[in-house]
């Protein structure tokens, strides 16, 4: 039975169930900024229902097989893990490839919503929506991933560091679809540790603040890579590059991490809302950043 009086009452839109990516980019081109792609719908459906989003055209990509799946591919600088845009978060979490090759992403996805929302929500959807407190964008940034975008004009790759422009704003143009996200795999010959920490008032909500860390140590225990990303404490997820540079290239110990924490607050310009003020976010970013770095360090040392 079609309900005509329920709480789903979106404004009128054209619906296209696309069978191929070509159809999607054609429709996006015709949409001229008024078309939007729907995948899992975990954000877009409520926004449509509340009429906070009023697209003229909604392009459904759920049935496009080529947009779903996880694989390891060779790239210029070694192997990379490719996650196609419409891959469900639940499938990513359950994937052996993700668990073994991208442990940080696995740790982060465990914080994304709930099992029920992860069953529908997609990896590409999280990256396209680009909430500054959301876990997958933060992880992609911290892991130096890039996304592949396509429009009728062609395909281009955008590194995460260039991708996030502001809250829910990215370098993806209105006529582009996000095809996939590409994560470099860990270097061989190094010991890698990762950690993801976040605080939210309710489990499964967007983070109030989140921290993601990667540390790589060589055989001598010297850090060859330090990456720290903070979410929820600025308009976009942020890398704390000053801290990374301070810690990279030597032996890392807890005291050194603690001494570098001031860089976190300096790198962030948080906003405030009823969940937490700017001062809270700044302080807690340092707390979670320290915890993530310590845990990543311990994991790398054990590896």
């Amino acid at each position: 039975m079609v309900r005509t009086d329920g709480s789903m009452k979106a404004a009128k839109f054209d619906y296209i169930q696309a069978a191929t990516v070509d159809e999607v980019v054609d429709a996006l081109a015709k949409g001229d900024g008024e078309a939007i792609v729907i995948a899992g719908g975990q954000t877009l459906m409520p926004m449509l229902s509340m009429r906070l989003a009023r697209p003229e055209t909604v392009i459904d990509i759920n049935r496009i097989a080529e947009l779903s799946g996880i694989e390891v591919a060779s790239a210029a600088n070694g192997d990379e893990v490719v996650i196609k845009a419409c891959t469900r978060q639940a499938a990513a979490l359950a994937s052996d490839i993700i668990q073994t090759q991208l442990p940080l992403l696995a740790k982060a996805i465990a914080y994304v919503g709930h099992q029920q929302t992860r069953n529908r929500g997609t990896v590409g959807g999280s990256l396209s929506h680009a909430d500054p407190a959301s876990e997958i964008p933060l992880t992609a940034l911290t892991m130096d991933a890039y996304v592949r975008l396509r429009s009728v004009a062609g395909t281009r790759d955008v590194a995460m560091v260039d991708y996030f422009l502001g809250p829910m704003m990215t370098a993806r143009a209105d006529n582009e679809i996000l095809l996939s996200v590409h994560f470099p795999t860990a270097q061989t010959g190094v010991r890698t540790g990762t950690a993801f920490h976040e605080v939210s008032e309710l489990r499964g909500d967007f983070a109030v603040v989140a921290a993601a860390a990667v540390i790589e140590l060589d055989g001598a225990g010297t850090s060859t890579k330090v990456a720290l990303g903070i979410g929820g404490a600025d308009g976009v997820p942020k890398r704390i590059t000053e801290l990374e540079e301070k810690l990279r290239g030597g032996r890392i110990d807890p005291g050194g991490i603690h001494a570098a924490l001031g860089e976190i607050a300096d790198a962030l310009s948080p906003g405030g809302d009823q969940h937490a003020g700017a001062a809270y976010r700044r302080r807690v970013a340092a707390v979670l950043g320290e915890r993530a770095l310590l845990e990543a360090l311990a994991e790398a040392e054990r590896a």
């Binding site: 008032e201 109030v208 969940h275 937490a276 003020g277 809270y280 302080r283 707390v287 915890r291």
Partner: peptide, 21 residues
Amino acid sequence: MRMHKIEALINAKNSTMEKPR
């Protein structure tokens, strides 16, 4: 008793001490 209010109380106490981990 939202977490940011509790954190502020803890932080006020700790502001002269080392930040707890």
